[in-house]
Design a protein around this nucleic acid. Structure first.
Length: 334
DNA sequence: TCTGGGGTCCTCTTTCTC
DNA sequence: TCTGGAGAAAGAGGACCC
């Protein structure tokens, strides 16, 4: 289950006058400032606006779009409501971020289509929002099918559909294939999932290593036996900020880092975790991104200790270029 | 000229420990 | 005391996801 243009849909629900207008959610909502698009409404997508596009570029593509800030707390609230509805249909639910989930419906004595309609109706009734659903023998194929008929889609895929409906798709549609891998594959003249499936396993392993090579080989054939993960523990917590303008002011960088450390420590403290590895991240004006890490003797949620460790990391950088972003991450232990 | 923020996982290299 | 090797842990970077 994948919500349709989730952030934009939540905003349109709050402000019905936005319906039918191009709506772009991202950053602080000011398209003259730094930030990227989180979600574009389908209306905005017609102008070529999509997730991860710089807001300033989106504004050039569609100056009359409505630009709104990300109201994460509100989306989390609506998301929790949706997840409750889903858990009511099958408790075997895997959360995949804020607007997606996998449901194991193997043991529900109804047809796939019946269950899917039930989910769509329940979400519509409970939240007023639409979603797209893909039903397939495994998570990999369900994920791809959920995107075949967006928005408000319902796609049921059987193993027989692999060659006709999946193989013609671009490799980029495969979960785990991003822009880099797409580029490598294009150089190998592999453009579709079918062409990937027609590539010898040895060739893929040679190019991508045993782990990822094997994954590509199996995924292109629709093979995925990964289980649903219904519960997991976070492994890290982090905060990072991009400056509105790049800075070489060490004081400003240090002040920012101290604030980020405070936020992340408060976060782990109230969630009941302790940190052991402290990593500081610096992105320079040329987008070069470096990290420096240190490991504490004991896991802790003590602000002073973690701040000291973070400043130790900061001291390891040669700050010769202007700094664009500062971040801090804590490796966690319960 | 532009490129967020919160994560996970993998790989490679270096360092530590036995 | 020196030396080497194996394996774990730490550190760094990169790709990917939502």
């Amino acid at each position: 289950m994948d919500m349709d243009a989730f952030f934009a849909a939540v905003e349109e629900r709050r402000r019905p006058e936005l319906a039918g207008r191009p709506v772009v959610i991202g950053g602080g909502g000011d398209p003259t400032k730094r930030g990227v698009v989180s979600t574009a409404s389908y209306e905005a997508r017609k102008f070529g606006i999509h997730s991860a596009l710089p807001l300033q570029t989106a504004r050039k593509l569609c100056p009359h779009a409505v630009f709104l800030p990300v109201d994460y707390e509100e989306y989390v609230r609506v998301s929790a409501q949706i997840k409750e509805i889903l858990r009511g249909i099958s408790p075997l639910m895997e959360d995949v971020g804020i607007d997606e989930a996998f449901l194991d419906i193997s043991d529900i004595p109804k047809s796939s289509e019946e269950i899917a309609r039930e989910i769509k109706e329940a979400i519509k009734a409970g939240t007023g929002l639409t979603c797209s659903i893909g039903i397939a023998p495994n998570k990999l194929l369900a994920k791809i099918s959920s995107e075949l008929q967006k928005p408000d889609g319902l796609t049921i895929l059987t193993p027989d559909d692999l060659e006709t409906r999946i193989w013609p798709l671009a490799v980029r549609k495969l979960w785990g294939v991003g822009p880099k891998t797409e580029g490598y594959l294009r150089e190998m003249a592999i453009l579709t999932i079918g062409e990937l499936a027609g590539t010898a396993k040895e060739i893929l392993i040679e190019h991508f290593g045993p782990s990822y090579g094997n994954y590509l080989y199996e995924a292109s054939r629709g093979i995925d036996d990964s289980p649903l993960v219904t519960h997991w523990e976070p492994k890290s917590a982090s905060r990072e900020t991009t400056f509105q303008t790049d800075t070489d002011n060490w004081q400003a960088i240090a002040r920012c880092l101290a604030e980020l450390v405070k936020e992340v420590v408060e976060d782990i403290h109230c969630r009941g975790y302790k940190g052991k590895q402290v990593t500081v991240k610096i992105r320079f004006s040329d987008f070069q991104t470096l990290t420096r890490a240190t490991t504490l003797k004991e896991p802790t949620d003590n602000l002073e200790l973690i701040r000291k460790a973070a400043f130790l990391c900061l001291a390891k950088f040669e700050l010769k270029k202007r700094v664009r972003l500062v971040g801090v991450r804590l490796g966690l232990i319960r």
